[in-house]
Design a protein around this nucleic acid. Sequence first.
DNA 1: GATTACTGTTGCGACATGGGCAACTCGCCG
DNA 2: CGGCGAGTTGCCCATGTCGCAACAGTAATC
Lengths: 258, 258
Amino acid sequence: MGNSPHDREAGVVQSVDRAIAILELLASAGEAGITEIAEHLGVHKSTASRLVATLQARELVEQHGERGRFTLGIGVLRFTGALGRQSEIVRVGTPLCEELADKLGESVHIAVLDGADVINICEARGPAAVSTQNWIGQRTPPHTSSSGKVLLAAASRAQQDEILSKELEAVAPRTITDPRRLREELERVRRDGYAVAIEEFEPGLHGVAVPVHGRGDAVIAAISASGPAYRMKRKQMREMVAELQVAARELSARLGHR
Amino acid sequence: MGNSPHDREAGVVQSVDRAIAILELLASAGEAGITEIAEHLGVHKSTASRLVATLQARELVEQHGERGRFTLGIGVLRFTGALGRQSEIVRVGTPLCEELADKLGESVHIAVLDGADVINICEARGPAAVSTQNWIGQRTPPHTSSSGKVLLAAASRAQQDEILSKELEAVAPRTITDPRRLREELERVRRDGYAVAIEEFEPGLHGVAVPVHGRGDAVIAAISASGPAYRMKRKQMREMVAELQVAARELSARLGHR
DNA sequence: GATTACTGTTGCGACATGGGCAACTCGCCG
DNA sequence: CGGCGAGTTGCCCATGTCGCAACAGTAATC
């Protein structure tokens, strides 16, 4: 996704949109230089330099050395903790994800339902993680992931009907796109207390997820592990479910729900 | 601080600077409407509306209702966890700050030294907190606060010399501005293991801070409590020091240092 | 040590964009 | 039902943003 006029949404302020894209690039990549940022955005490097300088003036970006590369700056901390419940889950959940990612060797995420989408709000990549993509904040359709199935299974009937009444997009060859099959699958998730996604989001990628409970039966989040199919055999996935359930209970307790 | 041409730094991209100011306003105020944002920035409300729409398109801002007020959006989570050590301290420290703020009834902060400045990276306001200002990410001169004195006392001799060789700005009538007096004060802080600021940052405001240790003797942060002078008597401050020291040890342990 | 290549920065002027104005829609209130 | 104030949007033009060219600095190569 570039930043050419074709990609830009109508009615947005171009230079602001570009500046946010820079922040997202730095959040994903960790660090970058001006030339790299310019290429990513599809703009001249003097343009990138000025946008970065503006972010730097407000401490959202920080340069290492006199003419060095750039990382996110400490000013982004101003935006944390002002989000309400999600930031509470993030604060408590992120160390848990990291512990578990280390233990399982795979990536661990916590996700919530937001409207008709699933959003990852915590992410910890396992030591053997292949992808470097930053999924935090990104929306995915709930029928395509193990987390999504967990959250959908626990959603209200009205919310399920809303989501299942629309065409279920096939994001991978094995995505479940038949609403009847999906309802059966959600029934299975409710019964088993966990969900799996077998190459349904991406070929070669498996995932398992369990619910994180709030008060009573309410499900406030899902915690999941994912990894390549060749490592996630049935036995590994069963073990992961058990570990995820322990982590889910701990997260719930730390949030004051149990 | 407005956003008129007089306030704007040379060389920054105006519209990006304005967009960041909107994010900072929402982080501080919690929520705002377009008219309020426009007034804060000193621009027309159509301008504010378009800037907010651009932030909204990238989910950094979220509108409540069809024409309702705005808050920070979940997209700001993309920027967390990409900061390195500070974000680790934030994740672990923020719940600690909140527990302690509840317990002490005053505001609690965690700060680090960054160059010649002190930066607050965690903040929890007590139930009785008066100020609503968001201090996270803001820089203050280290000689003016209890946290600053703790961090300065633990800094290298070179760093102390650098900071004390410059004019010590009086930000309040009681700010210590004499370098010799400050050195004596830092000696006292090292000996006592805590610092106090008696209306040195702001008339009517007291603060106490203790060091958070990393490996060995290294001080990686300071944790502090602050509140109005009429509530922070000598006895209360002694009790606060004890509580802050417990919290500092816990934070240090959770960061894997002790 | 000189040369080359690449990085990031900055002055300048053109023009594409951002911004203000006016008018609009919508919800709330009397 | 009308007035008020919020947020939104079409339009046009003033200006802020951008690309170009040149620069400075650093590292690698010969």
